[in-house]
Simulated assay, not measured.
Amino acid sequence: MYEIIQKLHSGWAYLAVLLVVIAVINSIIGLVSKKEYKDTDKKIGLYALGAIHTQVVIGILVYFVSPLGLSGFSMSDSALRLTSMEHPLMNIIGIVLMTIGWVKHKKQESSESKFKTVTIYYGLGLLLILSRIPWGLWF
Results as ranks from 00 to 15, higher is better:
R81G: 06
T99R: 00
G59A: 11
E36Y: 06
M98N: 04
L89V: 13
A13W: 01
L19W: 03
S74K: 13
F115E: 06
S78C: 02
T54A: 15
I93M: 07
G50H: 00
I92G: 02
Y47F: 14
K116G: 02
S76Q: 14
V118H: 00
I29L: 14
P67Q: 07
Q108A: 14
I25C: 09
I60Q: 09
E36I: 02
G101W: 05
A23W: 00
L68I: 15
M90Y: 11
Y14P: 14
Y37C: 11
Y121V: 01
Y121S: 04
L18V: 10
N91L: 10
V62I: 01
L89C: 09
E86I: 12
M85K: 02
G72E: 05
L18P: 09
I120S: 02
L19S: 10
L49W: 03
S78T: 10
V56E: 15
V56F: 12
F73T: 04
G30T: 00
L70I: 14
I93S: 04
I58Q: 07
M75Q: 14
F73Q: 09
I120C: 03
I120N: 02
N26W: 05
S110T: 15
I58A: 11
G69S: 11
E109Y: 09
I52L: 05
G101H: 07
K107I: 02
I93F: 08
S66W: 10
F64M: 13
G30A: 01
T83H: 06
I22D: 12
N91E: 13
A23P: 08
A48I: 00
L89W: 06
I120L: 12
S76W: 03
G69P: 15
V57D: 05
V118N: 07
F64N: 12
S78E: 13
M85P: 05
V65E: 12
S33D: 07
K114F: 04
L82F: 07
S66G: 11
K116W: 04
I95K: 00
D39L: 08
G59H: 03
N91Q: 12
W102G: 14
I100A: 06
Q55D: 06
T40F: 12
I52S: 04
L80H: 00
N26I: 00
L80V: 15
G45H: 09
H105T: 10
T40N: 14
S66M: 13
G59V: 01
K42H: 12
M90N: 10
F115T: 01
Y37A: 09
I58T: 00
K34Y: 06
S33C: 05
V20H: 11
F115D: 06
I22R: 01
S74D: 15
K107C: 08
D41P: 01
E112L: 11
T54E: 11
E86C: 02
H105R: 13
D77V: 05
A79R: 01
G101Y: 04
K43R: 10
I100W: 03
V57R: 01
S27E: 05
Y14C: 07
K104H: 01
D77N: 15
